[in-house]
Nucleic acid binder design. Structure first.
Length: 683
DNA sequence: AACTCTCTCGCCCTCTGCTGGATTTGT
DNA sequence: AACAAATCCAGCAGAGGGCGAGAGAGTT
């Protein structure tokens, strides 16, 4: 027995596998014991009356759609499809012809006078997904102005001696018990049919709600085809994909004979089509491509394939240079690129697509369906490509390589972004609409806006004054206005500074506190950084201070400022230019290595040592063995301007330097004055 | 049997947006 | 130096566009 579950919403435009309906001369009714019995025809009114009073059990019993006339030798192809309806179309239909109406609680009303209508109803108001309609002879039966599930009962002549019967079961929320009952029925049927040696076919149709909270319903189409093949039980190979064979079914008319595939659910009224279909099960591919040795089932497929080798594309687009192998591809291309006709429309949003498969994929974004499960983790994807892409996270595969730096990426988009940001000159910039900030990535701009420009219900207080803001950006901008204020005033003198940490160090001048002690020589310092510089210079053998070399005379200097001065004396305009403000700017930006800063710090350290302190040696150790930079002299020659520059720079500016600067800016001279060997510091 | 039309699946692509670690900047 | 905030950046997933190609059905 074949059974397939079809998600209605996902298959809105997919006709569902039909089944031959061969009328019998009487109704067969399944009684409570699961036995099917012949049942006489009843009038529509009788049926209606019976169904009106019926319960869910009636659904189980009455859903066998009975052919219109026992005398007629007809067969019916039942197809399901979703179709949009209009109210006008609805009014045109004769709803009295046949109806099975499921009432609240799963009760089904049945009425049958021939081709007709079937729907499900829950309460007075039908919901979209719970509407079903049956139509006959390609007529559409609408229930409301929405898409309904349409069942076509396609009448056709049936060959002499053949009988058919349709059993359609519809139950909503029937639960496991009902399902089990149906399964039992289905299991009983083969035996019964075999015993009766009749050739009957059934379509067992179940409508079941989807997951809790989901609007989706599932149709379970069970093929109850019990047609015997020369009295042989039907053997269906397990590896046959029945769901696939259930697609692409069309209405068939005028056939005298029905051919049923014993491997899958395929049926056809034409022998040629049947033979054509059977080739799909044989893997017989006798048509060989002489170019690549690939084989095909049909000449047409081979020809299309060969066209891909030869580039033969007979169907050319009149609006562009594209050409295609088949006319269908051209039509589709024109829809995508030129006409923008999108016949497949989503019932839940405004999305429309050129192809049904795209709508099907889109609908999954509404239903949350994720049919493609990763075998390595819990991730499940809505389409195959995403799963394939996801699998790269497990395999580590990075198929995309930057052509410039050869960095590899798992996604093409990531590589493209990388190339744009790293190797492109005209990289896109995203200007913040609220401030002057320019950010290279749009997503980062969103973060910027979220963090800085989003209204905050809580008051954001300025840390320096009483101002209050509700946007971080405004707060930050405001606080910057306090930046150049020397907000920190010394209680003991007139010293003022911009940062608290400067004041902390300064206060130690008054208190004499030197909390940082060298573990090697017990020398004490007011600032941690001074201790660090000291330790490096006198106790760290691996310390290599930087040396600035004059490009003219190769003389080395321990500090940039000294070399600059030297360059001014040494001559060349180039050297002067290098020593000019430009050079200083460069230094302040980034080109001065940390080692250079260390030298400045060392000089400042000396400047900050207390009066009367002596250095261990007159000559300081200098790397490269080239210049014995006399740091003391350097410090003596430090100008006020230089210190101010350092101060402004702030980066690499040590506390000692700032203290020295503070002194130059008017600090009491005795604080900083000291003797250093035979020479005096200038301040 | 060959052909055409239609439907469907599968593949690959782009664009988009979120996330979290790394780095830079400000205090 | 330490910390926090801002920004940079790669990784990854969601959604959708476009096309190649196979298969069934109808027609010639």
């Amino acid at each position: 027995m074949a059974a397939t579950e079809i998600s209605v919403l996902s298959e809105q435009f997919t006709k569902i596998k039909e089944l031959e309906l061969m009328p019998e001369k009487g109704l067969k009714e399944e009684e409570e014991d699961g036995v099917y019995r012949e049942k006489d025809h009843r009038s529509p009114s009788e049926l209606e009356a019976e169904c009106t009073a019926g319960a869910l059990q009636d659904l189980e019993e009455e859903l066998e759609l009975v052919p219109v006339s026992s005398e007629e030798t007809e067969k019916h192809i039942l197809t399901l499809q979703m179709a949009p309806f209009t109210s006008e179309a609805f009014e045109l239909q004769d709803l009295s012809s046949l109806s099975l109406q499921q009432q609240e609680g799963g009760q089904v009303m049945g009425q049958q006078t021939g081709p007709g209508l079937l729907w499900l109803e829950e309460g007075p108001q039908q919901s979209l997904q719970q509407s079903l309609a049956i139509s006959d002879q390609e007529e559409l039966y609408s229930l409301q102005e929405m898409e309904v599930l349409q069942l076509h009962l396609l009448e056709d002549n049936v060959m002499a001696g053949e009988e058919s019967k349709l059993a359609a079961s519809l139950a909503e929320s029937a639960g496991l018990t009902k399902l089990q009952e149906r399964q039992e029925k289905e299991q009983l049927l083969p035996e019964r049919r075999l015993a009766e040696r009749t050739k009957e076919q059934f379509l067992h149709l179940e409508a079941m709600p989807g997951d809790k909270g989901s609007d989706e319903i599932f149709l379970k189409i069970s093929d109850l085809n019990m047609e015997e093949q020369k009295d042989q039980p039907i053997a269906v190979p397990a590896n046959v994909e029945k769901a696939k064979s259930a697609k692409n079914q069309r209405q068939t008319k005028g056939a005298k004979r029905t051919f049923c595939c014993d491997v899958c659910m395929f049926t056809s009224s034409r022998m040629s089509s049947f033979h054509h279909h059977m080739k799909t099960h044989t893997n017989e591919k006798t048509h060989l491509c002489h170019l690549c040795l690939k084989t095909f089932r049909t000449v047409t497929l081979l020809r299309n394939h060969v066209n891909t080798h030869t580039g033969t594309r007979p169907y050319k687009c009149s609006d562009c240079s594209m050409a295609f192998v088949t006319s269908g591809e051209l039509v589709r291309h024109r829809r995508y690129k030129h006409t923008h006709e999108k016949p497949f429309k989503c019932s839940m949003c405004k999305y429309a697509s050129v192809e049904a498969s795209k709508l099907k994929r889109h609908v999954r974004s509404h239903t949350g369906e994720r049919p493609f499960q990763c075998c390595e983790c819990s991730y499940a994807s809505r389409d195959t490509y995403k799963l394939k892409r996801h699998m790269r996270t497990h395999s580590g595969e990075k198929p995309y390589e930057c052509h410039v730096c050869h960095a590899r990426f798992s996604q093409s988009g990531t590589m493209k972004t990388h190339t744009q940001q790293k190797h492109s000159e005209d990289l896109p910039k995203h200007q913040c609409p609220h401030c002057a900030t320019i950010i290279t990535r749009k997503s980062d701009l969103r973060v910027h806006i979220r963090n800085l420009h989003t209204y905050s219900a809580a008051e954001l207080k300025c840390r320096y004054c009483s101002a209050v803001f509700h946007e971080r950006y405004a707060l930050i901008q405001h606080q910057k206005t306090h930046k150049n204020e020397k907000r920190f005033k010394c209680e003991h003198c007139s010293y003022a500074c911009k940062q608290a940490r400067y004041m902390t160090s300064h206060i130690r001048i008054h208190t004499g506190e030197k909390p940082f002690t060298c573990l090697s020589c017990n020398k004490c310092f007011r600032q941690k950084q001074l201790l660090k510089v000291h330790f490096r210079k006198y106790h760290d053998a691996s310390f290599i201070p930087a040396v600035y070399k004059c490009t003219k005379c190769d003389k080395g200097f321990s500090r940039w400022s000294n070399m600059r001065r030297h360059l001014e004396k040494c001559g060349s305009g180039q050297a002067k230019a290098a020593a000019s403000g430009q050079g200083r700017t460069r230094r302040r930006k980034q080109t001065v290595p940390k080692e250079a800063t260390r030298r400045d710090e060392a000089a400042a350290e000396e400047a900050s040592t207390t009066k009367g302190e002596q250095f261990p040696g007159e000559t300081l150790p200098v790397a490269c063995g080239e210049t014995t930079a006399r740091v003391k002299e350097d410090v003596d020659e430090v100008t006020c301007e230089m210190l101010l520059n350092m101060m402004d720079n702030s980066t690499g500016c040590t506390g000692a330097m700032m203290l020295a600067s503070a002194q130059l800016l008017g600090r009491p001279q005795e604080t900083y004055s000291r003797r250093r060997g035979s020479r005096r510091v200038i301040w």
